[in-house]
């Protein structure tokens, strides 16, 4: 076993310290060391988006970030999208638009879509499709996902 290093980061607004091996990805650290299993591994090489988190305001595939790289940085994961008991408009729109079937890609899509709406509060369908092209869904054909993101973007809350 290689030596574990101590890492400090801010995750969903909370300062967090944890230990991880240098070979562990951020995704592995979140899931295996911190018990935050909302981000999923679909491909392990940055081609499906199921592991998406927001790192210092930028959307990243956490499977190809080393845990050691997030020292001192700000992270938002799917666990931090809702405000307490209050769902984010994207989460509500995904439910109302039936934008999930199996649900395994859903956390990645919601995190990715949040990163979009944070930058572009009122995207066009084309902008939504371009932004989400790094997230694979095999169940829905994307139709209802794109509609859910557009619907959430009409909510004023999404832009808060």
């Amino acid at each position: 076993m290689s030596e574990r290093v101590q890492i400090q980061a801010t995750i969903n607004g909370e300062p967090v310290q944890f230990l991880a091996e240098p070979r562990q990805s951020l995704l592995e650290a979140l899931r295996d060391e911190l018990g935050m299993t909302g981000a999923k591994e679909g491909c392990g090489n940055g081609n499906c988006g199921a592991c998406n988190v927001i790192l210092d305001g930028r959307l990243v595939d956490s499977c190809i970030v080393l845990a050691a790289e997030v020292e001192g940085r700000l992270l938002t994961t799917i666990e931090g999208i809702a405000q307490g008991n209050h769902l984010h408009p994207l989460q509500q729109a995904f439910l109302e638009e039936a934008a999930l079937q199996c649900g395994v890609c859903t956390p990645g899509f919601i995190v990715a879509a949040k990163a979009l709406l944070d930058r572009t509060p009122h995207p066009t369908e084309d902008q939504v499709r371009h932004w989400l092209a790094g997230n694979l869904c095999r169940c829905t054909g994307y139709d209802k996902i794109v509609r859910a993101v557009l619907r959430a973007s009409e909510s004023t809350e999404a832009n808060a």
């Binding site: 899931r31 935050m36 299993t37 909302g38 981000a39 999923k40 591994e41 994961t77 799917i78 666990e79 999208i81 809702a82 769902l87 989460q91 995904f94 439910l95 109302e96 039936a98 999930l100 649900g103 395994v104 859903t106 956390p107 919601i110």
Partner: peptide, 18 residues
């Protein structure tokens, strides 16, 4: 709204690898 929807949009749903 589907009964399991909430867990699946919040990341709480427990899949096999979790």
């Amino acid at each position: 709204i589907r009964p399991d929807g909430l867990d699946k949009v919040t990341g709480r749903a427990r899949f096999g690898a979790d």
